[in-house]
Write a protein that binds this DNA or RNA. Structure first.
Lengths: 146, 146
DNA sequence: TAAAATTAAATTGTATGCAATTTAATTAAG
DNA sequence: CTTAATTAAATTGCATACAATTTAATTTTA
């Protein structure tokens, strides 16, 4: 068996599916004028009132090279504020504006709207999510124990 | 249950795992001076002697906006040739150079080297690949039947 | 067959990702 | 207490992704 054939790859369908899911989200997110990574940032900030850039990066597995310009664009859209921490001037704290907080109402229908496009039953979808989450966690550990 | 929480998302672990897997490949691909998308292009061209940009896009689910500059970079690295089809001048046909063909030897160890970093047994990995492939295919169909 | 529609790449513009470096602030060590 | 090491963001540079448009070639159709 030729292991260098596309059909024998695990990561190609992972890569392609990830992009396809983002494409499924896009028309829904267009209504909120958000990209998918920006939607993820909104989600962690709806959940946690105030987070540093590092905190957001730890949750989304993104570094400041990605987050700094992304957060600046979100700030330009009046969704959030970025302020230096008083206690530690190295840290930038991010909080949502009222506009950003209010956007959660407009986003409330997105999870269900998205769900409709996924051709999996509830049980399979949950099992799939579990597999992904466990593999993500385990791989993260594996990599860090280098 | 708040469906707008990060932990309740299916697509976040998909998105994060996809990027993490690419990061696992990177040190292996560095030896070949390839990025992950370039590696995928090499793979389809090792398998098929000649492909149009459209063919490559159909296999990798990428459009000419992504592929044209990517293929130009690979051409600059002497990995492939791009020529207009004689029969249909709209079509650009891509074939590997001898250098590109020869690179398969240097790539032969990559699948196994990569496999070592994935904390899953053979059976689970195959099952995971199947799930991904089926969901990719089904979602593709769902989207096209819009 | 000539105009209209379609198709394949390329181009343009914007938004990630990420490696590598830089800057500024804080902490650790001697 | 002062220097060295570390840390958090920002910056720089490069490579995807992808929407939207453009260009050139081919097909369709009236």
């Amino acid at each position: 068996m030729d292991l260098l054939k596309l059909e024998n790859q695990v990561c190609f369908p992972l890569y392609a599916l990830s992009r396809m899911m983002t494409a499924v989200y896009q028309p829904l997110l267009d209504e909120l004028n958000l990209t998918y990574p920006q939607y993820l940032v909104m989600m962690v900030l709806w959940e946690h009132r105030e987070l540093s850039v590092k905190d957001i990066g730890a949750k989304l597995l993104l570094d400041s090279g990605t987050l700094t310009p992304l957060l600046k664009r979100m700030q330009e859209k009046q969704l959030l504020k970025r302020t230096r921490s008083a206690g530690d001037e190295r840290v930038v704290l991010v909080t949502l504006t009222q506009t950003g907080l209010d956007l959660k109402t407009k986003a409330a229908h997105i999870p269900n709207a998205f769900r409709c496009h996924i051709p999996l039953g509830d049980h399979e979808l949950l099992a799939f999510k579990d597999t992904l989450t466990k593999l993500l966690t385990k791989t993260e550990t594996t990599i860090n124990n280098n």
